[in-house]
Amino acid sequence: MDQAAEPHGDETLMQAWAGGDASAFEALYARHRLPLFRFLQGHVRDRALAEELFQDVWQRVIAARDGWHPDAPFGAWLYRIAHNRLADHWRAQKHRPPAPLDADQRTAALASGDDPERHASQVEESARLYRALDELPPEQREAVLLRLHGELPLEEIGRITGVGRETVKSRLRYAMDRLRGRLEA
């Protein structure tokens, strides 16, 4: 079901929040916090940096809430802010590539689970996926992360990244082919 058609879809919640309903913001935050964080961490691979960027994005959302228009889907608006924040970060870093997952992040992931064997397997699979993502050209990686974590349609990914729907479709197709080949190897 389309979120905009739901009684508490993102757009309805955004309008309520703009009208002063703090609980509407809490609902938006709860709905988007994990996918947004995963999207950011998928780009930078550093948990502390991802947390910093995450906070910056939400601060920008709060500061810009009056600039949001009901004709723009909230998710696309949110990920556009995140995309721009990442662009600012990479410009400041002179396009330094993301660091691989470090031992502390893997240990923390293991400690958070009940079944160490299963969690170790999940951590290894996740690390393989991120290594494969790191090998993608930046445009393909971003399209995959927006689709995977933002669950955005092709048109919205195109608006965020400044390209057409067919270009997004091609990037995703090539990225999936590369990922499949890398993960099957």
Rank of each mutant, 00 (worst) to 15 (best):
Y29K: 01
I81H: 01
P98V: 06
G75Y: 03
P100R: 06
A109V: 13
E166T: 15
T167D: 04
W17Y: 04
N84F: 10
F54A: 12
E166L: 13
L34K: 09
F39K: 02
W90L: 07
A27I: 07
Y130A: 07
A87R: 15
A22F: 05
A111C: 09
Q122K: 10
V123M: 05
E151V: 05
G164F: 03
D115I: 10
E26F: 00
R131H: 09
A24P: 00
L136F: 01
L148N: 10
F74I: 12
G158W: 00
E184C: 12
I62T: 10
E156W: 01
L53S: 13
D114I: 14
F74A: 09
R47N: 15
H8I: 02
P70Q: 10
L101T: 03
R165Y: 12
H119Y: 12
R96C: 09
L152K: 06
E125T: 09
E166C: 08
R147W: 08
V44W: 00
T167V: 14
L154Y: 12
R171M: 01
Q140V: 04
R31Q: 07
S126G: 11
W68M: 04
L145Q: 08
F37S: 00
T107E: 14
T167K: 06
R33I: 02
A127R: 12
F37D: 02
Y130N: 06
W58N: 10
D115W: 08
E155H: 13
A127M: 05
P35E: 06
A87C: 11
